[in-house]
Nucleic acid binder design. Structure first.
Lengths: 223, 223
DNA sequence: AGATGTGAAAGTTTTCACAGCC
DNA sequence: GGCTGTGAAAACTTTCACATCT
């Protein structure tokens, strides 16, 4: 049993994407602090490291519970547990990755995924020339084995790293195979049933925001 | 007084990151519409394609000008010109890419960049084994040539696709070489002078938001 | 004393609703 | 009639400021 850290998780109404993104970022800072063997941190210090205000930090946490101790701040380890549990990275997630191109390979070796318990169970590609190649211990599989693999490893998340024209078809097959969430790197708007959670990552949107700032010479209000 | 059917661009106070992101997305939809040879679109149709409301669409445009015609909607071509000009993708941008790994290669061949006039002038890597290799017509260069290349091609944007531990050093060299904006794919918080525009793309933050949704069974308010 | 947690205030963004033009 | 552009209202987010706890 534990019971040391004060924070039992509670409330959870109307959480916004922005709050969750900040929690992810706080978590990264906490990983660094743990490395530096810092045991305790105040909302003010955490805010400064991230570039926000202490009130924002405390408000973000307060949607989920009371994780700190008045007069003392937050224990780094306890706060990581609490945020990890909110984000759902306190367990291991099995993924399937579709698309064995360069982007797929970059994701396969992306350290952040490993650190946070996202585990790629299998890689698929529709190109027969790629099928059978090895990435470390993984062998690239044909799409025909997708459904069986999803079932076998109880995969809940599919990652799409294919060109835009095949994105929708891949998403359909993932959903058919039973995944509940999709992380989509293909620059295409996917249409899937409402029960499927979809997150899109578009590698060029941040570039356009940069060209906006450079051509107009103006900063943007934060994201 | 009379008007400005193809809308001259005006206002520009307190534009938020969110507005610019939506403009990028509208632009993509307009590219599709152009392909489909649709000449005109209403705020309502555009909103439906994107998944927002017509009021949001009109409000987004109204920060910059009057691009439509009452009773008729927006001409696709004209709207693309206006949004393109706002985003600064109505001109060609020269980039340097640092990091010739799989992510770098994925970015090099990413079609969206080419379509939107982002042109990779040169690729650099600090690993001597990679220097000299060819990617299409590009030859991977050593870091020692960075400053000269930035000057020669009048490069204003640097793209960082290296592991986190070298991210800060690469950013420093880019700034020293004279770039004004950085698109950073390394999961590290960069410290650079205020005049340098920085945009971070973290490939795993969207994954964490997905694991939040899956583990809690709840959608998030949009981003 | 020191720092959290949180209502209330301030600020920002989105939605409403309609005047104005096609 | 159709649809934009925009003030005003509603909803949401961030900041303030202080009671509360260690």
């Amino acid at each position: 049993m534990r019971g040391e850290s004060s924070g039992n998780i509670r409330k959870r109404e109307g959480i916004s994407e922005a709050t969750i993104r900040r929690l992810s970022n706080y978590y990264r800072i906490l990983e660094d602090l743990e490395q530096e063997e810092v045991a305790t941190i105040s909302s003010e210090e955490l805010a400064q490291r991230y570039g926000t205000t202490s009130a924002q930090v405390r408000k973000d946490f307060s949607s989920f519970g009371s994780f700190g101790r008045r007069g003392l701040g937050y224990r780094v380890a306890g706060l990581m547990e609490n945020i990890g549990s909110i984000l759902g990275i306190d367990r291991s997630w099995q993924l399937v990755l579709v698309g064995a191109g360069h982007l797929g390979h970059a994701l396969y070796q992306y350290e952040e995924f490993h650190k946070q318990n996202f585990h790629i169970a299998a890689v698929f590609d529709s190109n027969n020339k790629k099928v059978g190649r090895k990435w470390g211990e993984l062998t690239i599989k044909p799409m025909s084995e997708l459904a069986a693999t999803v079932e076998k490893f109880q995969v809940r998340i599919g990652v799409i790293a294919v060109p835009p024209k095949s994105g929708q078809a891949v998403a359909d097959r993932l959903v058919e195979a039973g995944v509940e969430g999709i992380l989509n790197f293909a620059p295409v708007k996917l249409k899937e049933p409402d029960r499927v959670f979809i997150r899109n990552v578009n590698l060029s949107i941040a570039m356009e925001s940069l060209s906006y700032s450079l051509s107009k010479g103006r900063k943007l209000k934060p994201f």
